[in-house]
Amino acid sequence: MQPSPTFRRFTISRRFALACACAALLAACAPDSVRNIQAKGFNAYLDSLQTACPNMVVGSSNISDWLRTSGSRGDDNYVYWLDQTSRLYYQRISPTQYRDSVSAALGGKSDSRALDCIVRNLPPDRPTRPPGGKLL
């Protein structure tokens, strides 16, 4: 015996609703630096690094190239770096925590000139949260 068309429609509707809920949940887990297009201050900070810190490399990762090309969608190192840099910018982690976490993830030294330059060029009056966003 086959299910009625009404039952099938109900099942498809439930599946669609479940898929939408899962997509919304996953989007909410994205780093603020990736999902918050209103983060004009953070974006301006990233833009300023291109001039202030040319040729930034940590381990085998070319941060300057990421900034010029907006990274690569398939590059987990870029996503991690961007998330940690956002946390640093919004004062969620200290410069020491930033250096340690990024150098460990990207395989560079904790005294990397690139990381020093990123920290040195932080705006002194940066905000503590992204505009319109929640910090987890």
Rank of each mutant, 00 (worst) to 15 (best):
Ser4Trp: 00
Ser4His: 01
Phe7Tyr: 05
Arg9Tyr: 03
Thr11Val: 15
Ile12Leu: 15
Arg14Gln: 12
Arg15Lys: 09
Ala19Arg: 04
Cys20Asn: 08
Cys20Trp: 13
Cys20Glu: 10
Ala21Gly: 14
Ala23Thr: 10
Ala23Cys: 14
Ala24Cys: 14
Pro31Cys: 11
Ser33Phe: 03
Ser33Glu: 10
Val34Pro: 05
Val34Asp: 12
Val34Gly: 08
Ala39Ile: 02
Phe42Tyr: 15
Tyr45Ala: 01
Tyr45Trp: 04
Asp47Cys: 00
Asp47Ser: 08
Ser48Ala: 13
Leu49Arg: 01
Ala52Leu: 07
Pro54Ala: 00
Val57Asp: 00
Ser61Trp: 00
Asn62Gly: 05
Asn62Leu: 08
Ile63Thr: 03
Ser64Gln: 03
Arg68Cys: 00
Ser72Ile: 02
Ser72Tyr: 07
Asp75Ile: 02
Asp75Lys: 06
Val79Gln: 11
Tyr80Glu: 10
Leu82Pro: 02
Gln84Cys: 05
Arg87Met: 13
Gln91Ala: 10
Ile93Met: 13
Ser94Asp: 03
Pro95Thr: 09
Thr96Val: 14
Thr96Lys: 15
Gln97Lys: 10
Arg99Leu: 02
Asp100Met: 11
Ser101Gln: 13
Val102Met: 10
Ala105Met: 10
Ala105Asn: 09
Leu106Ile: 07
Leu106Asp: 07
Ser112Leu: 11
Leu115Met: 12
Val119Asn: 08
Val119Asp: 01
Pro123Met: 08
Pro124His: 05
Arg129Thr: 05
Gly133Thr: 01
Lys134Tyr: 11
